[in-house]
Structure formats: structure tokens, C-alpha cells
Design a protein around this nucleic acid. Structure first.
Lengths: 238, 238
DNA sequence: AGCTACACGTGATTC
DNA sequence: TGAATCACGTGTAGC
């Protein structure tokens, strides 16, 4: 315990030299004191970290005798499982989270019922953001007027100040079907929807004086597995 | 970097002495080599731990610039929230987990419809364990024959080899209502139910050659916040 | 004997 | 400047 402090003190003593002809100079004792408080602070820091590690051991079964790295690996595994499970439950129940999110997936292609041979795509767009008046109207307008999509259904759910939409949209062919323009590829549509929604929300969040609350939402507050900067998400898996 | 190794080497050198009249003896170089591999191993260990810490930083937003202890505190907070949320969802959906569990809560007191003035208590008992044939019958028998409880309903759900029951039970007054015995307190009943179920399951698990699978269940695999040794749980909050 | 994991004190760095 | 964090090499104990 003490031999280390002693050794450190001796080393410092040699470098400083015997000023004033005696070994117990003020500089030396000051340095020794500093060194001591330094080691004590470091010990406190270690205790803090190890205390947290032991509560993690308590939180996850069968990790009592694991080494530190293995414990952290278990923590990571558990956290990943829980985060993905929570995201799945949120998705199925349409529960808003505290993180802004936009996902757009394309549905199956559907034959148009009209007389022409054109097809119609269905698109599922989910938006999670802060609520505010006329948000639904604004989003619908953006989707319908800019992208000429038809809103088949809009499922809405709010928790506190947060809101989550699930839009089911279909492409509409204008009367210019006779023109030479080809039907856009699916990826183009989803990206356009995403961009449009992103811009609409960016406009809104910049105009309003909302401040994001930092922490502790109500239910299934799990942050998403990946960091998602506000409204920059991209997920289009089926 | 090197001064530490040099200092350590010097100390060792003094203790060993100048064997064979020269400073580069075999013992010295062996010791130096051992010290070197030691420090390298320690560096690898540090890298392993820090790598896990950085993936934790990636898993939880806004922890990039946190100090180590604060990061671990955030991890603990997240894990707690997710574990309790998952337990709540499991409870509501009656999803079996991979951990044996018995909880007994007493319901509200209900006036008996009979002519006597005796009352009836309702009890909700949930059991999560490995499935096996005749398990339901065994449990029902134990509850009804030993404790003279009537099974109002039994909700059952299985995932893989795991099963979870939710029994709704009511106390039955025998024809000896006229005797001098008092109605037992609620805590006594719940404890009795718990003990009976625990014994029934212990009998089963010891007789069968089941081995608990260690890890990675299907859905909502969260272990419970508290360590629960098999069939020793106790939770009777309302 | 070696190998591994942990605790410790210390230098470097930042604020 | 002190106070705090982190990385580093080392001592030490268990297998």
C-alpha cells in the first residue's frame, strides 16, 4: 500500500534535490501531499466504476464470477436484445418513442383497377416526432400535393408530447399516363417520401420553439439500437 | 513508456544481483521478457474492456463524451427501464420467460353467494417453468386437493419448452363453516399457495431429467431485475 | 513454472 | 492552479 507512495516520493525527491540543506523541504512535502491526494482520487474513481460494474452483475444473472470484459459483453448482448424487442413492440403497437424517426417501406405492387395497364404501389411510412397542431394536415398535404400520393389510412398515436403516425399510401397516376415518362422505381419513391417528410418536419421543428426533453419518457423509452440524428433516419427493409 | 519497465527491471536486477559477473544474465533477460509479455497482456485486456465500453457508447445515445462511470450509470438506468418494461409486457401478455417464477397476488374479497355469512377471496397465481406432460393437472390437483381452492380460470401459454400459467383461484369454505376455525388471513393464503406450487414444481423438476438451457430464448428474453434462483421467487405485491 | 485478471500508483492531459 | 479523467506498467493472487 504505502511502498508505492514512498517510491514515488523518493523519485521526486531525487529530481528536486536537497534544497536548503535539509530533506524535508516545502516543495517536497507539497509534492508528496499532491501525490497522495492524486492516488486517493484515483482510488475513488476506481471504486465508483467497480460499484457500477457490480450493480450490473446484480442486474444480469449468472455474471457473478465473470471477468470484467465478459460481463460487459453480456451487458451488451442483453441491451441489444431488449432494445430490438422494445423496438419491435413499439412498431407493432405504434408507440411513439423519444427519438425522431422516419421509416418508409414499400408494400407489394397492386394492379390498378382502372382501364389502363398502369400499376399502383403501396407505401408504408411511419413518422415519430414531437406533436404540434396541424401536423397531420401538413404531412398529408406534403405527401399528396408534392408527391401525388393518396392516403389510404393514417394511424396516429400520442404519448405525452410525442406523436407517431403510420401512413399507408398508394401512388396515383395522373391523367398524363399517356406521356412517355416511365413508372419510377420503388427505391426512388421511398426516398422521395422520406425526403419530403424529412423536409416537412425540419421546417416545423425549426419554426416552433420546441426543445427536446433529454430523458426519461414513459414507456419503452429504449433508444434505438443505432444512433439516429433527428430526422436523418433511413430504414427501408420489408 | 519505457521508463516504467526500466524502473521495474532495475529493481529486479538489484534483488537478483550480478550473477556471473555481467549485467545481462539469463535470469535478467527472462524476467525482462516476462515483464514485457505481462504488460502487453494487460494492454490487450484494457483494449478488450474499452472496446466493449465504446460499443456501449454506440448503443446508448448521447454518451459519446461521458466519462466511464457516467456511461456505466446510463447503461444501468437503460437496462433497468428495459427490464421492467419487458417484465410488464410479459406479465400482460402472459409470455413465458426463461426463468422459473412464481407470483401470487390476492384479489379483492368477494361476498359469498351462499346463505352463510362467509366471504371468498380470489387469488391470482402465475407460474413460469419448463413444460411437461400433465403439468397443468398436477398443479390443479395440488391447489385444489391440498389447499381446497377452486380454479376459476387458467390461462396457459407456451414458448418452446417453456410454459406460463395464470390461475385465478377462489377459496372454498368446507361444510365445516360451522366450526370454530377462523378465516385465514390473506397473507397466509398467498404464502400457502406459493409454497404448494413451489413444492409441486420442485418435485417435478427433480424427477424429470430436464436441463435448463442457458441462454438466448426467443422473445423478451430479459432476465428479471433480481436474481431468482429456480422456484424460490417471492412476489406478492398487488 | 506460466498465464490471467484485478488493484494499485503514477504520468499525461484537460479544464 | 488543483481537480479530475484516462492509459500505462507493475505487484500480486488464483489456477
Amino acid at each position: 500500500m504505502d511502498f508505492m507512495g514512498f517510491r514515488g516520493g523518493a523519485g521526486l525527491y531525487q529530481s528536486v534535490g536537497r534544497r536548503n540543506g535539509h530533506v524535508g523541504g516545502v516543495a517536497e512535502v507539497r509534492a508528496a501531499l499532491a501525490l497522495k491526494s492524486h492516488s486517493e482520487a484515483e482510488r475513488r474513481r476506481r471504486e465508483r466504476i467497480n460499484s457500477h460494474l457490480s450493480t450490473l452483475r446484480r442486474l444480469i444473472p449468472n455474471t457473478s464470477k465473470m471477468e470484467k470484459a465478459a460481463l460487459l459483453a453480456e451487458v451488451i448482448s442483453q441491451l441489444r436484445q431488449l432494445q430490438t424487442a422494445a423496438a419491435e413492440v413499439r412498431r407493432r403497437w405504434n408507440v411513439p418513442s423519444d427519438i425522431d424517426e422516419i421509416t418508409v417501406e414499400e408494400g407489394e405492387r397492386v394492379e390498378s383497377s382502372g382501364s389502363s395497364s398502369s400499376t399502383v404501389r403501396s407505401i408504408k411510412a411511419t413518422i415519430c416526432c414531437d406533436d404540434r397542431p396541424d401536423l397531420l394536415a401538413d404531412l398529408k398535404k406534403a405527401l399528396e400535393s408534392i408527391l401525388r400520393l393518396k392516403t389510404v389510412s393514417a394511424e396516429i398515436s400520442t404519448v405525452g408530447c410525442r406523436i407517431r403516425f403510420v401512413f399507408i399510401l398508394v401512388t396515383t397516376r395522373t391523367s398524363t399516363t399517356t406521356s412517355q415518362e416511365q413508372e419510377p422505381a420503388a427505391g426512388v419513391i421511398t426516398r422521395s417520401v422520406q425526403q419530403t417528410l424529412k423536409c416537412a418536419l425540419a421546417r416545423i421543428s425549426s419554426s416552433s420553439s420546441h426543445r427536446r426533453r433529454q430523458n426519461q419518457p414513459d414507456f419503452f423509452s429504449a433508444r434505438n439500437p443505432r444512433r439516429i440524428s433527428p430526422l436523418e433516419s433511413s430504414s427501408s427493409s420489408s
